[in-house]
């Protein structure tokens, strides 16, 4: 996985609450057996009409947000289905950071596994970032994972929290499975104990 350290990018405002994973990537794109190539269908039903033409007033179709790498989103982002196709599509489009007042649990976890950083902030701070994002492509934000800071286009600094283990994995670009397999002997001994204690499993 690519390391996540510090970057500067354009933030797109998506204030709608409860943006679900069906909106992020409709199920017709779940028939793939690959992880890549979903970015073109990100937010498909909001982004294109039935004939496949772009809907001009959808935020990511506007000239100033086409290169966005940060989303400032409404509450409860990523609710619904567990489909990892949602973070795959976002990452493939080029999104690296999503900020909201809350995220659905499975989506939140899935994002980290794909080198993306979901950030939870209180409403007042999301409002500040939303306002900044509305300035368009001149409003570039800097996200620094090491220092846990977002800097807005006018220099306002907002601190954020992140789970230390997840931060470590993002900074180092670590593969979870590799890490867990280092603990294989602990798993072995757990299984041995369980074969005694709960043999029916």
């Amino acid at each position: 996985m690519e390391k996540f350290t510090k970057f500067t990018g354009i933030a797109a405002p998506m204030p709608l609450v409860n943006i679900d994973t069906d909106m992020i990537i409709p199920k017709i794109f779940l028939k793939t057996i690959k992880r890549s190539g979903l970015g073109v269908n990100l937010f498909d039903e909001m982004r294109y009409d039935r004939e496949g033409n772009e809907i001009a007033d959808f935020v990511l179709n506007k000239p100033q947000y086409r290169e966005a790498s940060i989303l400032i989103a409404g509450d409860n982002f990523g609710c619904g289905s567990s489909r990892e196709h949602a973070p795959w599509a976002l990452a493939d489009f080029g999104i690296k950071v999503i900020v909201s007042t809350s995220f659905a649990d499975i989506f939140f976890n899935n994002s980290f596994k794909n080198g993306m950083l979901p950030i939870v902030l209180p409403q007042e701070q999301v409002d500040i970032l939303m306002k900044d994002a509305e300035k368009g492509s001149n409003a570039r934000m800097t996200v620094d994972l090491e220092s846990q800071e977002i800097t807005t286009s006018d220099g306002t600094v907002i601190k954020f929290d992140v789970d230390p283990f997840k931060k470590h994995c993002l900074l180092e670009g670590l593969d979870d499975i590799g890490l867990t397999l280092e603990k294989a002997s602990a798993i072995d001994s757990f299984e041995t104990q369980m074969a005694q204690a709960r043999p029916w499993i």
Partner: peptide, 9 residues
């Protein structure tokens, strides 16, 4: 529920 990366895990 879990995502596909966790399925692999």
């Amino acid at each position: 529920g879990i995502g596909t990366s966790e399925v692999e895990h």
